[in-house]
Nucleic acid binder design. Structure first.
Length: 554
RNA sequence: UGGCCUAUAGUAUAAUGGUAGUACGACAGAUUUUGGUUCUGUUUGUCUUGGUUCGAAUCCAGGUAGGCCAACCA
């Protein structure tokens, strides 16, 4: 029996619209501007728009809002499509606002003919000045009095390239004293003699967001046009234009954008991180971009689950990055292959082990009832982690210490007999004995131990590089911190361990596999790996209650 | 000295005039050949002041706090 999940406010609106017969089905759209890579905030919007259409049997268009040729590039178009597909969604149609340039132009002509738009020769400074302020009404200038014919001719000349950038704009004639600044005769078209990534040099006038977005929605018969809160003031203009143009009445709804602790979400800041080399690129595993998270090893299902868990509302929010990590772990725990890798080796010689090698069988994933097993070589000389031995153990320490016993995962119980030190007094080796009757799976020794350690046979170890990532910023709320965001960059967000020691099975595994390095965390192969050099990214750590315990004492 | 949006545990999010619930976190315990996983339990909340009502997180009014709006960006 599963409880009915409550609806968010947009689902309520949709169910009401459907119930009242306002629409037979719904159509949504995801409208990125191709001027950057998608990030986790876009993932929230993608999951919402596509998820709604799936839930209510409608469809979703992918529409590139490419009305500003100077910032947009084909490279971004391709990455956006790849990321959406990877997230697991399919768009009904791939559209571009630039597909509608001719139609949009005709809409503008229609407004001019209705006496609702005029060509203004003022400079941008003059226009800003005449606009007034939220508390001071704006004033209309003489250009607003031009005749329809004059406006028609001027607008045609603008299109034909007669004027230089900035010399003229087309404005809607709305209300210069509106308390909503967006209604004070907003600019509809501006002149830009720039090359567009799709239309080339065909156009030298380009519609503004407000004269492209709602009209594109309408052309595509989008029923629910969902955007973020900062577009609320645009809605009045959105509706005004649809009404005056007498076109399909799409409706705009707004929800709160996603913010996540210890990271930034604005394209401007992300671009800066890339350009100024604070990260290696858009797909740096520390980036909140979808491609960065993908490279880091986050699963698409985990991202979708996260978007589902954070909910949709109109309240400003700051989501704990821990929730994302929880979703990532939850997915990985079910699918990751368990492997043993020693990062910081301490040699152990098992003095009473006389065979060259013994293969022990260890399950690939204990969470899976039908798990496969692998054969792991065990020998006289092995490595364990330096952390897993202490000469003077604190209370509740389950690991190795002089005279103490632990189990080696999947193999035998050993006892530490002797500590070997170098001249400086550092522990360099442990001499241990093993209990032959304690073999994993048929232990008849009766010995109880608290700790189980991961280990690797020295002679059989495979080397690899490991890249461990931490949060990119040192403060929770980067956007609200008083200084420039770059002052808060975490200098230790990347730690590279050049040489770790892995069990041999890891050398045979591949890029689409996910691993849990036992007691270490989840890892995946990085694209920088070559045939003779394995490089792993730490996707996320395991929960570590012992580390927390140690921290509490100190 | 304008308009608009918002306010529920630490963080998010539900309850649509009728028992304030869920997830993450935190804490405690059980299980465990990963100090992982799993399981159990505990903890903490309706911004404020009035009003309407048998009954208010919900409706109304005032206040307070936070956010957004004056790009030829989207």
């Amino acid at each position: 029996m599963s409880e009915e999940k409550s609806l968010n406010f947009i689902e309520e609106i949709i169910e009401k619209d459907l119930a009242e017969g306002k629409h037979e089905t719904i159509t949504t759209r995801f409208p990125p501007e191709p001027n950057g890579y998608l990030h986790i905030g876009h993932a929230k919007s993608i999951c919402l728009n596509f998820g709604l259409a799936i839930k209510y049997g409608g469809s979703t268009n992918l529409r590139f809002d490419d009305t500003n040729p100077v910032t947009e590039e084909t490279e971004y178009v391709e990455s956006i499509k790849e990321d959406i597909k990877w997230l697991g969604f399919n768009w009904a149609n791939e559209f571009y606002a630039s597909d509608y340039f001719e139609q949009l132009y005709q809409f503008a002509v229609k407004l001019i003919n209705k006496g609702l738009a005029y060509v203004d020769d003022s400079t941008s400074e003059e226009i800003a000045q005449q606009k007034g302020s939220p508390t001071i009404p704006g004033v209309r200038n003489k250009f607003a009095d031009r005749t329809i014919d004059e406006n028609l001719q001027l607008f045609t000349e603008m299109r034909n390239g007669k004027y230089a950038d900035g010399k003229k704009v087309l404005r809607a004639k709305v209300d210069m004293s509106s308390p909503n600044m967006h209604m004070r005769d907003p600019i509809l078209y501006r002149i830009k003699h720039a090359h567009h990534h799709r239309t080339g040099d065909k156009w030298c006038i380009y519609p503004m967001y407000d004269f492209a977005h709602g009209q594109s929605d309408s052309i595509e018969k989008i029923t629910h046009s969902i955007c973020t809160l900062e577009f609320i003031p645009h809605r009045e203009l959105y509706n005004w234009l649809i009404e005056k143009l007498e076109i399909f009445p799409s409706h705009q709804y707004e929800f709160a954008r996603l913010n996540v602790t210890y990271t930034v979400m604005s394209k401007r800041k992300l671009l800066q991180l890339v350009n100024e080399k604070h990260v290696t690129g858009w797909d740096d595993p520390r980036m909140p971009t979808i491609c960065g998270m993908r490279r880091r090893g986050y699963g698409a299902a985990a991202l979708r689950d996260f978007c589902d868990k954070i909910g949709i509302a109109k309240r400003e929010n700051l989501i704990d990055i821990g929730l994302l990590e929880f979703c990532v772990r939850e997915e990985l725990n079910k699918i990751a292959l368990r492997r043993m890798v020693v990062f910081n080796p301490l040699k152990i010689t098992i003095t009473n082990f006389d065979k060259d090698v013994e293969f022990v069988s260890i399950e690939d994933n204990p969470e899976d009832e039908n798990t496969t097993h692998r054969q792991v070589p065990f020998s006289k000389e092995i490595y364990i982690e330096q952390d897993d031995f202490m000469e003077v153990p604190p209370k509740k320490y389950f690991r190795l210490f002089p005279g103490g016993k632990v189990r080696l995962k999947g193999a035998y119980i050993i006892q530490c007999d002797e500590v070997v030190k170098d001249n400086a007094g550092n522990v360099v080796e442990l001499k241990c004995t093993y209990f032959p009757e304690s073999k994993s799976g048929n232990d008849t020794s009766g010995i109880q131990v608290k700790g189980t350690l991961h280990w690797v046979s020295i002679a059989h170890a495979v080397n690899a590089e490991v890249r461990m990532y931490d949060r990119l910023f040192k403060v929770e709320n980067v956007a609200e911190a008083e200084r420039d965001f770059k002052d808060y960059i975490n200098p230790n967000s990347l730690e590279i361990i050049n040489k770790v020691y892995a069990e041999p099975a890891l050398a045979k595994d591949s890029f689409d596999q996910r691993f849990q390095f036992l007691r270490k965390g989840y890892f995946c192969l990085d694209k920088d790996s070559t045939t003779d050099k394995l490089i792993f990214n730490r996707t996320v750590t395991l929960k570590d209650t012992w580390a927390k315990e140690v921290k509490k004492v100190n």
